[in-house]
Design a protein around this nucleic acid. Structure first.
Lengths: 198, 198
DNA sequence: GTCTATACGAGGATAGAC
DNA sequence: GTCTATCCTCGTATAGAC
């Protein structure tokens, strides 16, 4: 669940280390192929410490997931707020996602490719998480402003961002031969053509 | 692996039953949350029979995966062959996928949402599987024919089909309040606008 | 708070009868 | 080919010392 004692610097450092390691291993091998033993060894801490801070494996995963989602949300929000046009908001978001997928592929892999509901039963599906709802919201506001043609909100959102998301999948699967960022401009352009008012 | 004795009708029937059950349970609970016990009980067969036909759990999953991919490929190919224009090919494919996701959601869930490489280590990533390569091929031919503007092939493919794929994800996650097929026309239109030559 | 040692159960896989 | 019974490993989680 949540870190227990934020005032203890040593404990917090240990938690940080465990979370980092967990992200690495979960992304590489998957949740179920990663044992507490693995995390313990890779992080250089003891079983007891892990269970003390995270209660059990599921809570550890949830803690990691929540941390990452909160971070992405916190970083995405100002990008959107500082722009006024729908197009520029969309562009900013895809810029951000591509950069994140490039600089922290493990993080993006965990977020995008993980079937969280397999081990986090009461987690909302990823598509209903705040970042995805924010994307939909951007498009709805674009429709209100007349920048985007009249579409079902979900269709508009997936048309604008679906290509970008799949490009990140391809990147993470190693299917692309050039760096992801080289596809950025075309990807944004395609998404926008799909939804822009004519 | 592959079914062992195709000549035995009883054995084939059992295999079919096991595969059906496995698809159901893997889609619902995930591979790792489904034990051989679960499959055995739900399919009404014995442990021995399962291991006799599929060798082990991993091979069972691989057998299932291969079966489904071959089927999709076999059903997609004629749809493409009978059309000549790129647009109509794309439309046919998305029509087909949406219908499949509607009629056989478990199947689509297994194909789209499963992280196959977590339990099928030497399987190619889903994006490199034949159906996905076929989609890319359609767009490349569309470019050659001048129907599609000049784009990176992967960008074109994800722009055309990425929205549709995400709509299926939303559908499978229960995020849509209308039947998937009601979003079909808009989805195809958006994808095409993204890539069509102007 | 952190460690080691250990209990405990689950589930994959096998043996051997029919 | 199919069944039941059983083995055995592995991994989660706990107990209890420091």
């Amino acid at each position: 669940m949540l870190p227990m004692d934020k005032s203890n610097p040593k404990g917090q450092q240990l938690q940080e280390k465990v979370l980092q390691t967990a992200l690495l291993l979960f992304s590489d091998k998957g949740y179920f192929n990663t044992s507490i033993q693995d995390i313990k060894k890779a992080a250089g801490v003891s079983t007891g410490a892990i269970y003390h801070h995270f209660h059990n494996k599921e809570h550890l995963a949830k803690s990691l997931y929540d941390n990452l989602m909160v971070r992405i949300e916190r970083e995405m929000r100002p990008l959107i707020m500082t722009e006024t046009s729908c197009f520029r908001r969309c562009k900013k978001v895809i810029d951000y996602l591509f950069e994140l997928a490039t600089k922290e592929p493990k993080l993006m892999q965990f977020i995008l490719l993980a079937k969280h509901n397999e081990y986090l039963p009461d987690e909302v599906p990823i598509c209903s998480s705040t970042p995805f709802l924010m994307m939909r919201r951007i498009l709805e506001e674009g429709m209100d402003a007349g920048e985007v043609r009249d579409l079902e909100p979900w269709v508009a959102a997936t048309a604008m961002f679906g290509g970008a998301i799949r490009m990140m999948n391809l990147h993470l699967d190693g299917a692309l031969d050039k760096p992801l960022l080289e596809y950025l401009a075309e990807t944004v352009d395609c998404g926008w053509r799909a939804v822009k008012a004519d």
